[in-house]
Structure formats: C-alpha cells, structure tokens
Design a binder for these strands. Structure first.
Lengths: 340, 340
DNA sequence: CTGAAAGCGCTAACAT
DNA sequence: ATGTTAGCGCTTTCAG
C-alpha cells in the first residue's frame, strides 16, 4: 500500500486532478462542481484514506501550518505548562508546534530562528533573549506573525503578553514590610531582560518607600544547580542579619529552599520567604511558601489568541498590542509576621 | 530582499544549478568540480546568505530532518526533562523536534501519528498509550524508525528503552518492610501500561514474600488535580491502620503529599511515604521523601542514540533492541524505621 | 463546470 | 567536469 497522490485518485475517478483539488479544498460550490461528483470524490477519498501531501502543499502555498515556539527551557515548569496549553490550542486549530529551548543564548536563538524560518513556520511564539532584537525585527519586516511573551524587547514593535512584574514584586515586598520585616534581600538571576528588571524595580520601589536598604544578590544562570546553590549559600551565610528573602524566579526559589534546608534555617522565624512563581514545591514546603502565581492559562490563551488572530487575518495592522496580565499573590506561612 | 533560490545564484555565477546543488551538498569532490569554482560558489552563497528551501528539499528527497516526539504530557516534569535532553541532542545532529502530548488517549495519539506521518517526519519517539499497537506496527511495516520509551507494547516489535520498574518497586517495598512497616498501600493510576503493571507487580511480589496483605488504590487519571486528590483523601481516611504508603508516579506522589498535609498526617510516624520518581517536591518536603529516581539523562541518551542510529544506517536489521535502565533508590526521612 | 499546464525549489539520472 | 531535464505532489491561472 504505497502512498497515493492526488493524481492517482483523479485517474481512478476519471476526473482531472484540478477538480479533485478544488473539491478537497472546499471550493466545489464556488467552482460549481456537481453535487454528485463531489460526493463521489469525497467518498472515495475517505475510503482509501487519501491524505494530501502537506509538504507539496506547503511548497506550493508557502504555508506550513506549523508554529514555532521558542521558550527559555522546556524543562522549566513555567514554560512547559505554557507549552502544554499552547500546544492544545494550536492543534485544535490545525497547527502543529515545533519547539526549542533557547537557554537565553542569543546565538543559539538566532540559529533557531533561521531554522524555523527555513522551515517556513507560519508564526512565531518567542520568549526572547536579549540581543535578538534585529532578528525579530527582520522577521517583522518580512511580515511574519510574531508574538513575544514573558518579556519583551524595548526596541521591537512586536505584540507581546506579559504579567505585571513590577507591581507583583512591589506588592509582595510591601507585604513583607507590613509583616514587620526590615532586612529584605532579593535574590535573582543576573539578567537585563525586561521582566527581571521590572521585578527588581518593584522590590526597590517598595523598599524606598519605607527607607529600608536593598540587598540584592544576582546569580549567574547555569544549568548546573550546584552553581546556583553555592552562591546562594554563601550569600545567606554572609548576611546573617537578614530577616526575609525574596526569590525572583521559581528556579531561584527552589534552589533557595534547598539552601535554607541545608543550612537548617527556620522559616519564617529565622528568615521569611517569598518567591516569584507558584508551584507544588512552594505549596508543599514546610511551612508553605508565600508566592506570586502567574496566570498560566491566561498567558497561554492570550498568546495563542493573538497569534491565531494574526494568522487568520492577513491584515497588516501596524498597531501592535501588548497584553499585561495580573498575578495572584498567595500569602502562606513562610511570610507570617515577624513580631507576633 | 526577497528569498533567492538556487537558480538565482546559479544565474548570478553563470553555472548550472546542478553544480550548485552538488557543491552545496558536499559532493563536489565526488563530482570532480573545480576547487576554485567551489570556493567561488561558497563565498557567494555565504555572502548573500542563501539558504536552500528545505521544504522543496524534503519534497524531493522524502526526508524532513524532523523527529516526532510524543510524550504523555509535556508539562509533566519527567517528560519535559526528557524532552529537553532529546531536543538538545537532536538539534546537535541536525534534526528538529515536533512534539505533542498524547494524554494517553488512543484516538488523539492516532490522529497525531497521522499528522506526523503526513508531515513526513523521519523518525518517531513515542511513549505509547495502549490500543495504539496497530498504528505503530503499521509505521514499522513501512520502515519508519520508531523508538518507544517509558513503557512498551507487548505485541509490537519496536525498539524501546525503559527502566527496571518491577525491581524498583520490589526493592522499595522491601525497604519499607525491613523498616518494620506492615500495612503498606500502593496508590497509583489505573493503567494497563507495561510500566505501571510492572510497578504494581514489584509491590505485590515483595509483599507476598512477607505474607503481608496488599492494599491497592487505583486512581482514574484526570488533568484536574482535585479529582486525584479527592479519592486519595477518601482512601487515606478510610484506611486508618495503614502505616506506609507507596505512590506509583510523581504525579500521584505530589497529590498524595498534598492530601497528607491537608489531613495533618505526620510522616513517617503516622505514615511512611515512598514515591516513584524523584523531583524537588520530594527532596524539599518535610521530612524529605524516599523516592525512586529514574535516570533521566540515560533514558534520553539511549532513546536518541538508538533513533539516530536507525536514522543514519538504512540497514533493515530486523532485530530490535530493548534497553532496560537501572533506577536509583534514594532513602530519606519519610521511610525511617517504624519501631525506633 | 472541467481540464491542461505552469510552476513552487530542489535533486539526481542522464547526457555532453 | 558541467549542463539538461524530469519529476516530487500540489495549487491555480487560463482555456475550453
């Protein structure tokens, strides 16, 4: 049973392949093709399980029905959860997903974008690393639908969906202050990305209002967890007068908890804890960790809606939209008042 | 700057496109094409950034350089971790990954396989649901490279890589028994998949040896966590005389811990805990949870190695290989002796 | 209403 | 050593 092509079925039915093509693409009415012929063709196609070769179709039409998804790291629960939701929606709309992890590496990302481009993906969903501005702009210039998420690029006029990072950390820091904590550290990955900068700024603003001194520890990102745990350990050992710590991402937060356990620090009596992102680890830690929960579903939904929208309307609306979503602040035991 | 094709560059250089094609595909030597010409072409190609249209190439050659990856759920840390590692290796070898989550849904998986097939993926990596045997066999019959992982299909003669599930649970159950626990429950997803059956069997065998009575609770899988938590809660409430519980997967384990926290059960004094899979949640729980760690890297490595091997050698070795990997058993506080 | 034919960009026999 | 040419399977003018 070799794969049969449109011409095989055309021959079988003594019709031209053009007609078959029209029928299969739902243009029978438009082309005024006889009802009975249409039915006969559809029945036969069904019967032999003929599927058009999508490669040939793509080559001809220039459309691939593939969406390129570039996340920072698919094994990070934030990104894998989003990927999952995007995947569902995309498949439901007839799109497949090709994905890759950028590791926030500009060169790698550039190569990957070229690969995607080469593969004629119809649209791009990207959590962009810095330095990739020109490549994105070039995509945009060529009319490719692009949606950025989790962060944006200051000099790129692409649609993006983000959360309100600044307010989220501002608010959470305020909470710590209200609980009576005065020496609040912020531990995060060293990054100039918009979302990380905004988080840092929210922390600073809240502290400024109260006149407390900020203590920031930036960690160099590394796949190897030991290289994240080590600097956090050093930091906590050296700053004994801290009474609270704010972790800037789920990854830092998880590593931070390991350090806290390793050092035998009591939470919240020795040290209060708050973390960005909210996953099982934080909920199940003892005591449960106060965390900022990103609205995963809403993010994924917005991203795919915006993209599908651009995909379906070839309208070249110059205006680009940015969607900013709210987070939930889940207060738990780890940040209970210091003075009780 | 419109995309230029091989013919554009052929014209520009006053050479035939065949020659260009040969040069670009590294067959210059073989075809005895002049060194200087080769260099001239390469320089020009580099200069204008020409990239062959891989769609056309695929249509012509029948190869897409895409690997289809089907996991159960990309947002499950086990699968996302594996996906990440496979992705890296694949990209390094010039392959891209198209992925999807099957949800263990046979119909969905069937559609997905057809999609992949339609897209002419070069190879398949699949964590197969039950009922998909015929589809896989059909793939195999058509000479498609297929590697199964995490589980296998009894009536399918495909390569697969798995872990030693039976021994892993046998061993862990033995450990509980040695620690003095006598009423050990096994909570797992209801599933006839080979890996789940093997895990269950390992548990039973260990119990049999000691003459203890097995208590098994099977949960219907559901994306909605509440529907997993509820039956576990009921089960634990109704079986007060249990002194240990064994969770059959990371997902069940995580939900189980939530139940344990919710019910205020003390671990291990009220109830000892062991779980399959080993992630941060288990390490950071108080007390840390004894867990069976799957060798993620080794699994991913084996899978991709086997697949790349099949991809590169068109040899139709009938013999299929099955790789069984060992797990690590990480004993922690949650299963400390009952009689101390 | 239907069919012939021209490509989409590339590869690889088959000339030359 | 290099060029000619025939497709891969499909869509889509343009003629009947």
């Amino acid at each position: 049973m070799k794969k049969l092509s449109i011409i095989d079925i055309a021959n079988h039915l003594n019709v031209s392949k053009t007609t078959i093509s029209f029928i299969l693409n739902g243009r029978a009415e438009e082309k005024r093709i006889g009802k009975e012929l249409v039915e006969r063709v559809q029945k036969f196609v069904e019967e032999v399980g003929y599927k058009p070769n999508s490669l040939a179709k793509s080559l001809r039409t220039g459309k691939s029905n593939i969406i390129g998804l570039m996340v920072e790291d698919i094994s990070n629960p934030f990104f894998s959860a989003i990927a999952r939701l995007i995947e569902d929606r995309a498949y439901k709309n007839g799109y497949k997903i090709i994905y890759c992890s950028t590791d926030n590496d500009t060169l790698k990302t550039r190569e990957l974008i070229n690969m995607f481009r080469d593969r004629h993906v119809d649209g791009y969903i990207i959590a962009p690393p810095q330095g990739i501005e020109d490549d994105i702009n070039s995509l945009l210039k060529d009319g490719m639908p692009v949606v950025l998420f989790d962060r944006h690029l200051p000099n790129v006029n692409a649609d993006f969906v983000e959360i309100d990072n600044l307010f989220s950390t501002y608010n959470a820091t305020k909470h710590l202050i209200q609980q009576g904590y005065k020496n609040i550290a912020f531990i995060t990955f060293a990054s100039g990305q918009t979302q990380m900068q905004a988080r840092l700024q929210g922390y600073h603003e809240a502290l400024n209002e109260s006149g407390y001194k900020p203590v920031v520890q930036e960690i160099i990102f590394n796949q190897n967890e030991d290289l994240i745990i080590a600097p956090i350990t050093n930091f906590l050992k050296k700053n004994k007068k801290l009474d609270a710590v704010f972790f800037g991402t789920n990854h830092v937060g998880t590593c931070g908890l390991k350090v806290i356990n390793g050092l035998g620090i009591k939470v919240p009596s020795d040290l209060a804890v708050v973390s960005f992102d909210d996953y099982d680890v934080f909920k199940l830690f003892s005591p449960p960790v106060t965390a900022i929960a990103q609205p995963i579903e809403a993010i994924a939904d917005s991203v795919i809606t915006v993209l599908l929208n651009k995909l379906n309307t070839s309208s070249q609306h110059i205006s680009s939209q940015s969607i900013i979503l709210k987070t939930d602040f889940n207060i738990r035991e780890s940040s209970k008042t210091a003075t009780s």
